[in-house]
Design a protein around this nucleic acid. Structure first.
Length: 585
RNA sequence: GCCCAUGUAGCUCAGUAGGUAGAGCGCAUCCUUGGUAAGGAUGAGGUCGACAGUUCAAAUCUGUCCGUGGGCUCCA
């Protein structure tokens, strides 16, 4: 038994066949879709009049266990097309027949059989059902047949399987842990953000704690951009519709833009992105090659009409803030600018505690070319893509190609960060654009005295603030590093007589730019400490008569760490150091 | 947008043979002034997501819409 990736794939693929077999045994009327393995497990799609319910999943899982116990050999057989067609017709497997039709003539067709069940399949599989010992069905969902919106909706059953019990258990534990630190849950508990039905789906509201957190991130992000040579600009939330027609967004993304507004014969739209505005800023003056690269930066709210079904906490919203930047440069500067941005991103994420970054290069693919997704001259595309990839090659870092993921105006580098649970989140995007500058008539005067069109780079480093905060919440489960904690320290007076002392300390801390407050509730100290821990406040300063007399504080660090008593100055120094060093704890 | 599930006090949730609602936390008031994860008592909060329909009677049944969740499709 091998536990390499390929082996795991076969194991999971076999698990999906066992799932289908179990479903067929229990519900013979069900028609089969497809059932592949995935990165994290497997699924199988079924067509059945009645919807599966969670209790069905238990029954199916039990039947799967039986099939495993029966230890049926999984046998591969090459079959003739006509023979298989006849069989599938008899069984009424219309979806399988559709697949069969698409297999080119002359290609061998294989059938995998295990006991009373056969499935047309390329494989590979494990040798017998008995090998699939550690599996778990996980969830039920709808899925379009062959992933096409216009096709019927099938019922998908998800599961996972591993070679060893420990790995399965670990995976299930990870899922549980992910649920526990779900940003929607933690964000509510810590009063970071909320959504209100009255306001509308997909419009996040930052509560005071969240606004503080957001503010810290914004300030830092802005400071770093300015250090890196960006100039901050500010642009309106609305613009004339022609702006979007010129950019082409109107034609590519009308469905995801909020509808136009008309007044006095003029049509306005709410911005779904900032690029056109930044292009106009560039155009505001005549540019020389000596000025380039020009780097504009804006913390800007944008609005996109995302379909109702895709909204998901802070990860997918209809109103969000981007740390959006655009770099205008000469073709010669492309490589160094790409490198700058990449390094900038790595640095910024490191400060927030993310060190494992993965690079993805998005280029065109035939399917999307045929669908007319990409704007501009195909030859220029070929040229840019080639250059783009060679630049990434020269960066000397591992990367993956994402075919079909290029933007309509050019190829892109996307940087994904890996979080504490090993999950990848897309954050930074760097997009090369050789289309919009032309469309907007951007030029610079070159060394030769002639007009040239600059390249444009679109980049968002943290991406969307909403999304980034969601990722931070999940990464730290709300236990933020001190420097971004909305509330950094709470003072806990033991009795009312020390309230004046507690307030005095609070004033000092606040004057030192520390986010502090006093818990003045009529509660026992124990209850206040419990509350402070639940709220995940980094530092609790307990003060009673002893502290008031000796002008000290008793310091308790988040997670039960009693650091004993120290002077106010001592704890402030300690906190300032942690803030400066962005310590993670 | 599509399939399925779901929506009861600020929060987490009970409440099935339809008969106008409960708990814990939180909140308020009072008592208590306490050394590192919950001191006690009393009390105020809900037209049971919205709107229609069935019924003598709807939180409970039906429909539509809205929100939320798991996915699919999508993500400039």
């Amino acid at each position: 038994m091998s536990s390499d990736h390929h082996g795991l794939e076969a194991l999971r693929h076999s698990a999906s066949h066992i799932l289908a077999q179990a479903v067929k045994r229990l519900y013979p009327e069900v028609k089969l879709g497809i059932g592949p393995s995935t990165d994290t497990g497997f699924y199988y799609d079924f067509d059945r009049e009645i919807s599966f319910v969670p209790e069905d999943l238990e029954k199916i899982q039990e039947e799967m266990k039986n099939i495993v116990k029966e230890n049926l050999p999984i046998e591969k057989k090459e079959v003739f097309r006509d023979e298989l067609r006849k069989l599938l017709e008899e069984q009424g497997e219309t979806y399988k027949l559709e697949l069969l039709k698409e297999i080119p003539e002359g290609e061998t067709i294989s059938l995998y059989t295990q006991g009373d069940f056969s499935d047309m399949c390329k494989g590979p599989h494990v040798a017998s059902t008995g090998e699939v010992r550690f599996f778990q069905l996980l969830s039920l969902a709808g899925a379009y047949w062959r992933g096409k919106e216009t096709n019927p909706m099938l019922q998908r059953i998800y599961g996972t399987a591993f070679f060893d019990k420990k790995e399965l258990k670990q995976y299930l534990l990870m899922l549980e842990e992910a649920k526990k630190r779900d940003h929607r849950k933690v964000g509510k508990e810590l009063k970071i953000f909320t959504f209100e039905e009255q306001v509308g789906a997909g419009f996040p509201i930052w509560l005071p704690k969240g606004a503080t957190l957001l503010g810290m991130i914004e300030d830092y992000d802005k400071k770093k951009h300015i250090e890196a040579g960006y100039q901050e600009i500010r642009t309106p939330h609305l613009g004339l519709v022609d702006l979007w027609k010129t950019s082409g967004h109107y034609y590519h993304y009308l469905d995801t833009m909020f509808p136009p507004m008309e007044r006095d014969n003029q049509v306005f739209m709410v911005k779904p992105m900032n690029c056109p505005f930044h292009l106009t800023v560039y155009k505001n003056e005549l540019r020389s090659y000596r000025e380039l690269p020009i780097r504009y930066f804006e913390l800007a709210n944008v609005y996109r009409y995302e379909k109702s079904g895709v909204l998901h906490g802070l990860l997918r919203v209809r109103s969000f803030e981007q740390d959006d930047a655009h770099v205008f440069c000469t073709p010669d500067q492309l490589e160094s600018e790409l490198n700058n941005i990449r390094e900038f991103s790595i640095q910024l994420f490191k400060d927030f505690g993310f060190t494992d970054l993965h690079i993805f290069v998005s280029i065109r693919d035939q399917e999307h070319i045929d669908a007319g997704k990409y704007a501009g001259d195909p030859q220029q595309w070929d040229h840019i893509e080639k250059e783009f990839i060679s630049i990434v090659e020269r960066m000397g870092i591992p990367y993956q190609i994402d075919p079909g993921e290029a933007k309509f105006y050019g190829p892109a580098i996307d940087i994904k960060v890996k979080d504490a649970l090993g999950r990848l989140w897309q954050c930074t995007t760097i997009q090369v654009d050789f289309n919009l500058p032309k469309k907007f008539g951007l030029t610079y005067i070159g060394e030769d005295g002639a007009e040239h069109t600059p390249y444009m780079l679109h980049t968002a480093t943290l991406g969307s603030m909403e999304r980034f905060i969601a990722i931070l919440l999940e990464q730290y489960a709300g236990n933020f590093p001190l420097w971004i904690s909305p509330l950094q320290v709470r003072i806990i007076p033991i009795s009312d007589d020390v309230l004046p002392y507690a307030r005095e300390i609070c004033t000092v801390l606040r004057k030192q730019n520390l986010r502090a407050e006093v818990d003045e509730n009529n509660e026992r100290m124990n209850a206040k400490i419990r509350k402070g821990e639940i709220e995940k406040i980094p530092y609790l300063l307990v003060v009673g008569k002893n502290e008031a007399e000796s002008q000290t504080v008793s310091v308790r660090k988040r997670h039960r760490e009693n650091l004993g008593s120290m002077s106010l100055e001592e704890i402030m120094n300690r906190m300032h150091q942690e803030i400066d060093e962005k310590t993670i704890f």
